[in-house]
């Protein structure tokens, strides 16, 4: 369902940002002691600038190529998903793995819930969530010997 070529201003904006990123890379590469370290980043920063600039030119000529199209669905839920995951991860060193994982799981269940809450769901979903979190905790910590964060606050 690709519609007729749209202007794709978003694509041009991303291209402009990428040019900025490339400039940042070149600036960083000035500080390297070893010239071998600089060759590769500078080369591909150049490629990035050329490709992005070419796209902007194309866009200015009215020949932009839009992405997969307008998105549908709930933006708040999307933002919440990423926010909850990030928040839980950042809190992990303080509140420990279990302390972060259980609330994250519960919060994400709420964010992803579209069906009505029946009594069965209210009872069973939390149990499954706890089972998954504890099961994986056990698998990772005891079997795979992964030192999961324990949390400075509780210091268990």
């Amino acid at each position: 369902m690709p519609t007729e070529p749209r202007s794709d201003t978003g694509g041009a904006v991303v291209s402009a940002i990428l040019i900025g990123v490339a400039c940042l890379v070149i600036w960083d590469s000035m500080s390297y002691m070893d010239k071998d370290s600089a060759v590769f980043p500078r080369t591909f920063a150049g490629v990035l600038i050329v490709a992005s600039a070419a796209y902007i030119v194309k866009w200015l000529l009215g020949r932009g190529e839009a992405g997969p199209g307008a998105d549908t669905g709930s933006l708040p839920r999307r933002v919440l998903l990423v926010g909850i995951m990030l928040g839980g991860t950042m809190a992990m060193p303080w509140i420990g793995f279990i302390g972060a994982a259980l609330p994250v799981f519960a919060a994400l269940t709420l964010v992803a819930m579209y069906d009505p809450w029946t009594r069965f769901r209210v009872l069973v979903y939390p149990l499954i969530g706890i089972a998954i979190v504890l099961g994986f905790f056990y698998l990772f910590r005891e079997v795979l010997q992964v030192p999961l964060p324990t949390g400075d606050l509780f210091d268990s």
Partner: peptide
Amino acid sequence: LPKALLVPAIAFMTIIGSYAIRNNI
């Protein structure tokens, strides 16, 4: 698996999985 469990389960696995590669937050 209903979506309300699938999403947190996958999200949880991505977190613990990417932590476990190098034990690094």
